[in-house]
Design a protein around this nucleic acid. Structure first.
Lengths: 170, 170, 170, 170
DNA sequence: CCGTAAGCGAGACGGTACGTCCCGTCTTGAG
DNA sequence: CTCAAGACGGGACGTACCGTCTCGCTTACGG
């Protein structure tokens, strides 16, 4: 997948590259997407570090920038692009991706936001789900459409804007 | 595409459904993605209405909610999902999508934001590109991953949060 | 047909080469085979000269050698190969070929043989149809299968063998 | 091929009829002609019986009549027609047909004729290649052009004429 | 002498078959 | 027994021609 582009990652190519029969792959994963998902989960496994006791704003900034690093510096970016593509036509992939990747990750962020609200760092009237989306959506948006460069500075600024708003303070 | 899901929209099926030979389709469009792109552009053609003289915040809210309506109420949603998927492995599709859809649309939003800054409605120190992303990214994010419902209320709240920030005011 | 081999002689190529629309060809001929047949008939038109008053054996020799010349020296050879090929799967071509080419030509030969029998030059107990075949078959056989060179010497020897037999005279 | 005529024997039809994917056929044979050739060779495999110790004339008669039987009574006739047609535009088919079918078969006949010459049964001054053609050409000629019926009687008479000549004995 | 209709080039069209690629399943043979 | 290797039935791909059709252009004929 990293070598010939996403579309070169056929099951046959994966098997040949791994020096393995196709049947063996099908024994362990039901589809190409499942292979990619597992590859992605492995690739992303160590991107979960969050400093204990950080402020909510600091935590959100860290989450956004480490997502960028994950996508830019590791195969996880390509894998996520492949998964996102597959998810559009294969509901099982979409489901697995939601359950295994997005759900637990979002749960963490929800918790961070809740604590931020509780300790008065964040507004009390937030739509929490929408807030989670505001943290991550820009990263995925640029990953998938590449209309602008995806880098940590972008993530940092996005989070800053989300935190303090883009409207001028009167 | 609307009938059998994205993956049923093979060139052969499209041709058969249109009562047309495959060669005819290839004469006019170079690939399935190009067909989808044109279908999408047609579908989305009339979603460009912006009231003259609206405030920046009102305009951004309208853009976000009308994007939601476009994706939810018309085939454009399915078509965009298909295009986003294809764009991951076909650079020509990615390019065409950026040039024909995102670029002009973003240009409009950039202008709105610029005017908002000028007339003091928006902060002067904004990263304009990042701000554009904050308007649209949440909509595409939910369209593509379906982790949470995509509706106008969500868009409205996202924009509200982006405008005024999620951080508590001291 | 002479330029790119038999299989390059598509209707489209013929039309383009002639600087003519396909429809015009279909207006005058019902199929590619009909075009080839007419081309062949024209090509072969002047190969019918038979000296009056020749002996039967001389006439048969002339017929065989002039068939060879026709096939070797003019486009008629290629055209006949094409027609023979088409005739295997298109009964109309086979019929037209028989009626327009073989029948009149064979009639001439039948007459020559009859006269040869009458004037005592040929055996009286001949199977005339089989005899006609013996005159022409070797030429077509080599034309179509090219297992051995097709030249006038071959035709001459064939006719000689047919005339006097291959069995030793006791 | 036997069911719908030669032109119905498309690769797709052959595959469907055989309950097989097209790719499987292409894995084993490079073209439709190669399939036909192998089918023909199988069909014709057991048509090689020649009684030991027969006279040359008897052997030639047997060869001609058994060729007729092969073409009339088995699928080999249709297959040969198809092969002859393909050979006109596909040199590989022509070559394979010559090498695998005509060459070995002609070699046998050459040997028969040589022995016939040696033991005084046949003329010593024969053009052997032309003689071989005289034995088989009439059969192929009628097979391919169908201008007259192809039957054993025809083959027998042809051989008789070839053996003893069509010229009257003085 | 020009307006108009016929004739034709060009090629778009609905279709069929091509030969290829990859899918997901099944079979085989070596370790 | 397991598994690599890969054959297999299947389906879509993108291409080449088929035979039909509709366009405009041009050309020459009749008013």
């Amino acid at each position: 997948m990293m070598e010939g582009g996403l579309s070169a990652a056929t099951m046959e190519a994966i098997a040949a590259r791994a020096g393995v029969g196709k049947a063996t792959i099908y024994k362990w994963w039901p589809s190409r997407g499942a292979v990619a998902l597992e590859g992605f989960m492995v690739s992303a496994a160590d991107s979960w570090s969050l400093p204990e006791g950080a402020s909510a704003s600091e935590a959100l900034r860290l989450l956004a920038t480490s997502a960028v690093r994950l996508f830019v510096d590791t195969p996880a970016g390509q894998l996520m692009r492949s998964l996102a593509a597959d998810a559009q036509s294969q509901p099982e992939i979409a489901l697995a991706l939601r359950e295994q990747w997005f759900r637990p990750r979002r749960a963490v962020v929800v918790e961070i936001i809740r604590q931020g609200i509780e300790n008065g760092e964040l507004r009390a009237d937030l739509d929490v789900a929408a807030t989670v989306d505001l943290v991550f959506a820009p990263v995925y948006y640029r990953l998938l459409f590449s209309h602008e460069p995806l880098d940590e500075e972008f993530a940092t600024r996005s989070i800053e804007h989300v935190l303090h708003g883009i409207a001028a303070r009167e």
